[in-house]
Amino acid sequence: MLTRRIIPCLDCRDGRVVKGVRFQGLRDAGSPAELAAAYEAQGADELVLLDVSATPEGRGTQVETVRQVRAVLSIPLTVGGGVRDADSARALLEAGADKVAVNTAAVREPELLTRLAREFGCQCTVLAVDAARRAGGGWEVVVTSGRERTGLDAGEWCSRGVACGAGEILLTSWDRDGTRAGYDLDLLRAVTRAVSVPVIASGGAASPEHLCDALEAGADAVLAASIFHDAEYTVGDIKRALVARGVAVRT
């Protein structure tokens, strides 16, 4: 049977892994290739590498970072941050990404998803969605690292993105990201109901229980960053906790 995936996330800036709350107060957390190799050894099922560089110059290091990570990594690698068109996606894939994640650019131009799916396959095309709770209920899609609200309903946008060609959703709760309060399970349920492709839960994980909760709420995979970077838990610790709760994982 298909197992649930544990995905450490490497937020990279200028070629280094960083950590912070809602992209503020970033601190250095190490070398991408060294951390990638360490997480694979711990039993990570896949890695996500997101470029959070503030400048185009910083982002220029991304392709080289992907190349270095690929050389040591024998599990799947999804890369996002600054993917604006088919050319920037191709450069990342040629450097060693297996999937590319598109966020703001897809909201601006949903047809980008169609172009990526046609050229590289839907299994290669990940729609990254940052969703914030609305005062009146429901969730709204936010872009440009949360600075801009779009008015789009998160479930409807995910559904449209899949119709355009996305083969996976990377769903981040903007309210929970960096808060250590656990994943937004209601958001997760709403989106897994809305789409037929796999959904990766992101934002808010601080304990093995949080990851269990998300998987039991319907996530196909769970993404976390700081709990791994801070060495609070290894991927192996998380998997042992999941097995104890009867969740099928690769061991």
Binding site: M1, L2, T3, R4, R5, D45, E46, C122, Q123, G167, E168, S196, V197, P198, D220, A221, R250
Partner: peptide, 13 residues
Amino acid sequence: GAGVRVPQLGWNR
């Protein structure tokens, strides 16, 4: 089929 998430993405035995 429609009863599973497609594409299949992940580790299978």
